[in-house]
């Protein structure tokens, strides 16, 4: 409750930790919305617009995305402006940003999606030259409403190495998250379990039931599960199993959320 005592106005942490804070505050009967908090600077894990809306609502703040990597300087390589909350300005006076095709290594024209490659200009200790970040994004070259002229990186849509290949289909956990967050009442806590059954990949999506989605009628719950299944099928073209689980049973992380458990033999 240091935040309350000191009247903190800015919170910086991972998006999942901010939701965890809101949950703990609610459990303690503390109204976190009444805090002096104004802005949340969040990063270090992929998150979606719907999670942003959820954080902004639950903490009564503006949440902005920050990007960085420990090999360069940690968070702070690029950040959204509060005016636009769309696209992270990369400090081009310190970094040269390029987007490449991760398979061929060739540089892509501005505006195309690919892997972000960074060269540091001003770093003296450990300079990085054309460092492959594994992060997938796009460079936004249009001028920004906030007036800054540094180009923007689109919200990271995933990493070249967190992309899952399930039955030959490329799946980013963020896509499944966007499906879940579109459904009213569904918790932002979910887990994907990937396994192999009889030589076929299987995907199980675990979703926590809460007071909004629970019903005494089994049919309502089954309808919820099948709606999630159907929308994932529509978006990704793969069938999955949806398992409704009890609240607070999916492990809360205080750091990066562990969304994916891949049990397939490598």
């Amino acid at each position: 409750m240091i935040m309350q005592d000191f009247g903190s106005t800015v919170l910086t942490c991972t998006p999942s930790y901010s939701l965890y804070l809101a949950e703990v505050a609610a459990e303690l009967g503390v109204d976190i919305k009444s805090f002096a908090l104004r802005v949340g600077i969040m990063g270090a894990e992929p998150w979606s617009e719907s999670i942003r809306a959820e954080i902004e609502d639950k903490l009564n703040i503006k949440a902005i995305d920050i990007y960085g990597l420990s090999e360069i300087l940690g968070p702070g390589v690029a950040i959204e402006c509060i005016e636009e909350q769309h696209g992270l300005h990369i400090w081009e006076d310190h970094f040269i940003a390029e987007i490449i095709n991760p398979d061929t290594g060739e540089v892509l024209p501005a505006g195309e999606q690919g892997e972000l490659v960074i060269t540091t200009i001003t770093k003296e200790g450990i300079p990085m030259i054309r460092y492959r970040t594994r992060d997938i994004t796009r460079l936004i070259t249009e001028p920004c409403r906030c007036g800054r002229t540094h180009r923007r990186l689109e919200r990271m849509s995933g990493r070249t190495d967190d992309m899952l290949i399930i039955r030959g289909v490329n799946v980013f956990p963020s896509q499944i998250e966007s499906v879940l967050m579109k459904i009213e009442g569904v918790e932002p806590h979910y887990q994907l379990i990937i396994d192999r059954e009889e030589n076929l990949d299987s995907l199980e999506v675990q979703v926590e039931v809460n007071e909004d989605t629970f019903s005494d009628a089994v049919k309502t719950l089954q309808d919820l599960a099948s709606r999630i299944r159907k929308e994932i099928k529509e978006l990704l073209g793969i069938t999955c199993k949806v398992r409704l689980v009890e609240p607070k049973t999916i492990a809360r992380s205080e750091g990066k959320a562990q969304r994916v458990i891949d049990q397939r033999v490598k």
Partner: peptide, 8 residues
């Protein structure tokens, strides 16, 4: 005890 409960 963290159970989801509803009244009907």
């Amino acid at each position: 005890h963290q159970f989801t409960v509803t009244k009907t």
